[in-house]
Amino acid sequence: MTISAELQAAARRLADEVRDLRFSEPIAFVYHPLDYAWAPHAAYIAAYGRTRKDVVFLGMNPGPFGMTQTGVPFGEVKAVRDFLKIEAPVARPDREHPARPVQGFACTRAEVSGSRLWGAVAQRWATAERFFNRHYVANYCPLTFIAAGGANFTPDKLPAAERAPLEAACDRHLLRLVELLEPKWVIGIGGFAEKRAQKVVGGRVQVGRVLHPSPRSPMSNQGWAEAAAADLTALGVCPLSDLAQGTGPDAQGAKAGRGAGRAAHAG
């Protein structure tokens, strides 16, 4: 089997392993993008998971207007369609929160984290092919958790008894991802992903972290691209220094409040 076919098989196994897990309040809805958005997810792997990588960037779990809609990590609709050149049919979860419908590529809400990440990649590498020649982006956990009121709920806040079987499945998948792609580095996008990577593959690869591009982080709102560039430069990994020469909010004020930004959003 090719690397991309092996990655698709691994994603299928992960989907199978987490499908029947159950979670308690405040979680009221659990979305499984690897099931209902499998077509674009498989297309992402087929297009960009064909070769070994130097660096794997690892996110936490799908955002409500990103991978939840498109099946692609950090998959803000415009970025997936226009930059990654992926568009495929997306079905619907078995149960949906009325305020959080899955509209697939018809979704008009922007995923800020995805816009920032893929926007920075586009600025630095110009084409998706150039970026994915050495890099890959994945999520640790494939599930979207939604509270009864419609709020996004992240896996780091799960009770230990519910988190353990989920992490066991996600750990196995992360290990398989690293076995297949053979990266030198796994870079957690935020603290949660970094911690899981360190625990699971820290003995195999070097592990680091960049600031998460979430709008909940004051640091990210002041200049995520420059902050991420500084993080990577400090690690000695694919520096994004030329991003800091751009204009707009993602190219300004990256140093101010850096500690506060990390404290505000760990994952």
Rank of each mutant, 00 (worst) to 15 (best):
T233D: 09
Q206E: 14
W185Y: 13
F131L: 06
L240G: 07
R196L: 06
L243V: 04
R130D: 12
P183L: 05
Q222T: 01
S241C: 08
Q245Y: 14
A164Q: 10
G203W: 10
G208R: 04
V178Y: 07
A244M: 13
S241Y: 07
E182L: 08
G191E: 05
S217L: 08
T127W: 11
P142S: 03
V200F: 10
P215M: 05
R116K: 11
F153R: 01
L211A: 03
L240M: 11
W125H: 12
Q206D: 12
G202H: 08
G253Y: 09
I189A: 00
F192G: 00
G208I: 07
G149D: 15
G188M: 02
R204D: 08
G188P: 09
V121E: 00
P155M: 03
F131K: 01
P249F: 14
L177Q: 08
S214L: 09
Q206C: 13
Q252N: 12
A138M: 03
Q206T: 12
G150E: 00
A151L: 05
A254K: 02
A256F: 15
Q198C: 06
A160R: 10
L143W: 06
E179H: 09
Q252G: 13
I189K: 00
W185I: 03
A138V: 03
E167H: 15
L174Q: 01
N221I: 02
S220R: 02
M219E: 13
R124S: 14
P218K: 01
P249V: 00
D250V: 06
A126H: 14
L177E: 12
V186F: 11
E167Y: 14
T247S: 15
V237D: 05
R204A: 14
A197W: 04
S214T: 14
H212V: 04
Q198Y: 06
A193H: 02
G191L: 02
E162V: 06
A128M: 09
K195W: 09
C170I: 01
K255Q: 13
F131T: 00
E129A: 13
D231G: 00
S214Q: 08
I189R: 01
E194P: 03
P183Q: 05
P155N: 02
M219V: 07
W125I: 05
F153H: 05
P159I: 03
A254M: 06
N221C: 09
P249I: 09
A169Y: 07
